[in-house]
Amino acid sequence: MTWSLFWSYSTAIVTTFAVPQLTSADAANLGAKAFLVFAGCMLITIVLSFFYLPETANRTLAEIDELYAARILKRKWKGFQTTEATALDNGMEMS
């Protein structure tokens, strides 16, 4: 939620204040080349997302808690086998 709010406010600020300055003839005068500024921002976002946002597909909340508690690197979550997943695969129920 925090990540989404941060980017929502950042986008609103950029759109409201920076875009007119970037495209204005008496300011930065980038015109259509203003997309390069946004392309750079997206590149940074993609790289940070790859390293800092974990893969949570098909994980329960208990498994995610276990991964945080074990301090597993977020980029290694995808292939990590948790004890809860192992117990469920063996037909046992975790308490």
Score class of each variant (00 low, 15 high):
residue 72 I to F: 05
residue 43 L to V: 12
residue 70 A to L: 12
residue 19 V to N: 12
residue 45 T to K: 04
residue 67 L to S: 06
residue 1 M to R: 13
residue 61 L to E: 15
residue 6 F to D: 08
residue 74 K to C: 11
residue 37 V to S: 06
residue 26 D to R: 01
residue 49 S to Y: 06
residue 59 R to N: 06
residue 36 L to S: 08
residue 36 L to R: 10
residue 6 F to Q: 05
residue 20 P to N: 03
residue 93 E to Y: 06
residue 8 S to C: 14
residue 2 T to V: 12
residue 40 G to T: 04
residue 82 T to Q: 00
residue 11 T to M: 09
residue 84 E to F: 08
residue 49 S to E: 02
residue 92 M to Q: 13
residue 53 L to N: 12
residue 31 G to V: 11
residue 63 E to C: 00
residue 34 A to K: 06
residue 46 I to L: 11
residue 25 A to G: 02
residue 45 T to Q: 07
residue 46 I to Q: 05
residue 69 A to R: 07
residue 54 P to E: 02
residue 68 Y to Q: 01
residue 61 L to V: 14
residue 54 P to V: 03
residue 47 V to Y: 00
residue 66 E to C: 01
residue 52 Y to E: 14
residue 95 S to A: 07
residue 91 G to P: 05
residue 50 F to H: 13
residue 39 A to K: 01
residue 11 T to Q: 07
residue 88 L to A: 12
residue 31 G to Q: 01
residue 23 T to I: 11
residue 75 R to L: 15
residue 87 A to G: 07
residue 36 L to M: 08
residue 28 A to M: 08
residue 70 A to R: 14
residue 53 L to W: 07
residue 32 A to V: 14
residue 64 I to D: 04
residue 66 E to V: 07
residue 88 L to T: 08
residue 41 C to N: 04
residue 63 E to Q: 10
residue 72 I to L: 08
residue 75 R to C: 15
residue 38 F to H: 00
residue 81 Q to A: 10
residue 70 A to D: 15
residue 92 M to W: 11
residue 59 R to V: 01
residue 84 E to L: 07
residue 33 K to P: 03
residue 90 N to S: 13
residue 64 I to E: 02
residue 6 F to Y: 13
residue 25 A to T: 11
residue 77 W to Y: 04
residue 30 L to S: 02
residue 2 T to Q: 14
residue 30 L to C: 03
residue 79 G to A: 01
residue 33 K to Q: 13
residue 51 F to C: 00
residue 15 T to R: 08
residue 13 I to P: 09
residue 79 G to R: 11
residue 34 A to S: 12
residue 60 T to M: 08
residue 45 T to I: 13
residue 17 F to G: 05
residue 3 W to E: 13
residue 16 T to I: 09
residue 64 I to A: 01
residue 58 N to P: 03
residue 46 I to F: 10
residue 84 E to V: 06
residue 61 L to I: 08
residue 74 K to H: 14
residue 38 F to R: 00
residue 91 G to S: 09
residue 50 F to P: 00
residue 71 R to M: 06
residue 1 M to Y: 14
residue 4 S to I: 10
residue 87 A to P: 01
residue 45 T to D: 07
residue 59 R to F: 07
residue 41 C to Q: 04
residue 36 L to T: 12
residue 76 K to W: 09
residue 65 D to M: 03
residue 19 V to Q: 09
residue 45 T to W: 12
residue 77 W to F: 07
residue 58 N to E: 08
residue 34 A to W: 14
residue 50 F to Q: 05
residue 77 W to L: 02
residue 35 F to N: 07
residue 39 A to T: 09
residue 11 T to A: 07
residue 65 D to F: 01
residue 5 L to G: 14
residue 79 G to I: 00
residue 10 S to G: 14
residue 2 T to C: 10
residue 22 L to R: 01
residue 57 A to W: 11
residue 9 Y to F: 12
residue 86 T to S: 15
residue 94 M to N: 01
residue 77 W to P: 02
residue 9 Y to G: 03
residue 70 A to G: 04
residue 29 N to H: 10
residue 42 M to L: 09
residue 7 W to G: 03
residue 26 D to K: 04
residue 29 N to Q: 04
residue 38 F to M: 03
residue 60 T to S: 13
residue 69 A to Y: 09
residue 26 D to N: 15
residue 87 A to M: 15
residue 18 A to S: 13
residue 86 T to N: 11
residue 92 M to C: 13
residue 36 L to H: 11
residue 62 A to C: 11
